[in-house]
Design a protein around this nucleic acid. Structure first.
Length: 336
RNA sequence: AUCAUAAAGAGGUACCU
């Protein structure tokens, strides 16, 4: 079974969930019984495929084989139901569980966050007997995701008062809240905290800092973080491009697009929305049209409605209403 | 014997007001 588990996990790690489930099925045919390890990988596959039905089938197997009260299996099941849109099933398992740990609670809280039941999530969070940094970060990010930024920042402060050291995810959630609120002082404080505690500036944390500084209008600080990052991906580039474009530094954002290609990072749909709006902002019609063309021609990205929208905005602002109308008429999709 | 299960980042704030 160990061999099978290893293979199944490898498939899940490579996002080949169908393959993983196929292996799981085949494992049974070959006379091997899945064990507690097997199920933790199989649940991940169900989650990636967002297939609650498959999850139920796996749940049956779990019961049949008697693994249901093993912590990893039980937590995996609750997590699987919670994120596949079956919070009530998750809750039933949660309520009947005799051995809940931090992970069980966090999985359940996350389930409520994902379906917008932030209040219920908070109630559970308050009831939770032991909270670790992951639990705090789950709740902070829950608030950030539903737009309750002040609540998120309050919780971030509470966490520190309780003496829990925030992890990367908690920091990222708090920074995101700062950005939306324009809370520059708080954001700077968090940045200093990151430095003081020598937290690694990975791509996610770096991007969150760039995003926070950009939204607060501090483009110098955003650029500085960008340069300090040891590695950058599309998110990091796009975040800075967006910030520059929004603060009248369109030319700098074009340079960044060039630099991006030089560093071998492929721009995506979001990147082009930002670049195209940088064009309309300063009225670079020619340049914008050229970039729009290059999307499919050079980068192999088919423009979506949002890109046609940018194009219409570009032409409209330049007073070229006829051409703008023509774009709407000839778009390959319904206007939104 | 399996770092086995929970948490994290970017997009016109476009037109109009």
């Amino acid at each position: 079974a160990f061999m099978w588990n290893t293979m199944i996990r490898a498939c899940v790690d490579m996002n080949q969930s169908r393959q993983a489930l196929w292996l799981y099925k085949y494992m049974g045919f070959s006379g091997f019984l899945p064990n507690n390890y097997t199920f933790s990988f199989v649940f991940r596959a169900c989650i990636e495929l967002n297939d609650g039905l498959l999850g139920i089938l796996c749940h049956c197997q779990v019961v049949k084989l008697g693994w249901e009260s093993y912590d990893f299996v039980q937590n995996g099941l609750i997590h699987m139901y919670a994120v596949c849109g079956c919070v009530s099933s998750a809750r039933k398992l949660f309520d009947s569980s005799l051995n809940r740990d931090v992970i069980t609670w966090t999985a359940m809280i996350n389930g409520y966050v994902k379906c917008g039941e932030i209040k219920v999530a908070r109630e559970l969070f308050d009831e939770m007997p032991v909270k670790n940094a992951v639990a705090w970060s789950a709740m902070i990010n829950g608030y950030a995701q539903v737009g309750l930024f002040n609540e998120g920042l309050d919780l971030f402060n509470d966490m520190q008062l309780e003496g829990v050291r925030p992890n990367h995810a908690g920091i990222v959630g708090a920074l995101s809240a700062c950005g939306f609120l324009g809370a520059l002082d708080q954001g700077k404080w968090i940045h200093a905290y990151v430095d003081r505690h020598k937290m690694e500036l990975d791509i996610v944390l770096g991007t969150a800092l760039i995003d926070m500084y950009s939204k607060c209008g501090c483009m110098d600080a955003a650029c500085h973080v960008f340069d300090e990052m040891p590695r950058r991906d599309v998110y990091a580039f796009t975040s800075l491009i967006s910030g520059l474009a929004n603060h009248g530094q369109s030319v700098a954002s074009f340079d960044l697009l060039t630099r991006m290609q030089r560093e071998g990072v492929r721009p995506n749909e979001v990147t082009f929305v930002c670049i195209l709006s940088a064009c309309s902002r300063i009225g670079l019609v020619e340049e914008g049209l050229k970039i729009f063309e290059s999307m499919s021609g050079v980068f192999g990205i088919e423009p979506g409605v949002e890109h046609y929208g940018c194009l219409v905005d570009l032409l409209g602002r330049a007073g070229m209403l006829e051409q703008a109308k023509k774009v709407v008429r000839e778009m390959p999709m319904e206007p939104d």
